[in-house]
Amino acid sequence: MASMRGVSFMLEVQGLKKTFTSGLVSKRSVKAVDGISFNIADGETFGLVGESGCGKTTVGRLVLRLIEPTEGKVIFNSIDVLKLNKKALRKLRPQMQIIFQDPESSLHPRMKIGDIIAEPLKLYNLVPKANREKKVLELIDMVGLQPEHVNRFPHELSGGQSQRVVLARVLALGPRFIVADEPTSSLDVSVQAQILSLMNTVQEEFHFSCLFISHDLNLISRMTSSMGVMYLGKIVEAGSTKELFEEARHPYTRALMSAIPIADPQTKRKKIVLEGEMPSPMNPPSGCRFHTRCRFKEKICEKTEPQLIDLGEGHRIACHLYAAEDKRLVIRHRVTVEI
């Protein structure tokens, strides 16, 4: 297992890129993911946050190789995933699972819940035939469903229940790593709370690492120990969740943090309302991709792309304001922010 400063990583992602091309004659290409690196320690949950279209969902698919990356490295449990052939990849798949956003379309509509959960057990012969039913009931109980659900069809379940079935099936495979792609964004808040607390419980029990993808910073702060903020295919800031929530540095992260909805009319907070919208990834801005909406834009931002630099303690940021060689800007930024 690869290690850095004594920490062993379950998943290492380095310089991951994906360019989608469309059109047979006049090829148009979109850099959906443009050079992303992060590590997830064993048993840890890493959060990936960003607005729609930033490429976070694609990252989830890429690390599982559900979409073939254009470039980069994905190392899972010391295995170079992108070097595997089809057969070896299929053998590895049970260990890396995914939970999708829309529970209703995550389940085969013509299979009974019991069969859906039993399918992985059958496919990999994980449990001898005689014990399968018992195992299914065990899993069903673990995710908080009733034994009578075994004979139901997916359309007879609510969204929350469907997501529990998805979880049960994923757990049946005994994965070491799970991508949770907005697992609760189509659920009501009270159900969301149910599902997320269930995920926390099973993560403790089954001990897997998790890539938690969400647009909701409230969830990221509750579910993850470290996180990355994505903007137009790039990570603009990453670090421990605690540090980022206490001391976000990147202007985009700060704007995102200030836009977090707070369910209390008494809390008055200075909001940074970002102007405009995220540019299209087909035609990203030159230099720093955020410069079109950034309040601290300097000339250099339009021309040169900022590199991700380490501020210490794993806090990484891609912003010219923090470029080490230009201390003057950093100081100016600090002053502006404090005012």
């Binding site: 698919r61 798949r93 085969h108 509509p109």
Partner: peptide, 21 residues
Amino acid sequence: KEYIEGARAMGCSDGYICLRY
């Protein structure tokens, strides 16, 4: 549909997915 992607993530072969899903 996501259940197809889920089946791929589970390691099902293309033939199996076409037939069963």
